[in-house]
Amino acid sequence: MSDTIERVKQVTVDLLGIDVDQIADQSRFVEDLGAESIQSIELVAAFEEEFDIEMDEDAALAITNVSAAAVFIDKVIAGG
């Protein structure tokens, strides 16, 4: 989980072009990090590539913050 969350943060930082110290576990992608709707889709795609997984679009786009994204990704990796 701790590795996942750090990788989620790094992907997010790279894609949204923000500083790494701006992002926390509970940061919300839209409200706190300023992700626009198109960027939300890009984030899903970037997570998929980073973790070599395929995420259900509806469930993935319903995720609102960094920590929830990491939990979700771990679940997908575990085949849940």
Binding site: I41, E42, V44, A45, A46, E48, E49, E57
Partner: peptide, 9 residues
């Protein structure tokens, strides 16, 4: 088209 989105879209 962003490369990352080719698969997702």
């Amino acid at each position: 088209i962003k490369r990352l989105l080719l698969k997702t879209c």
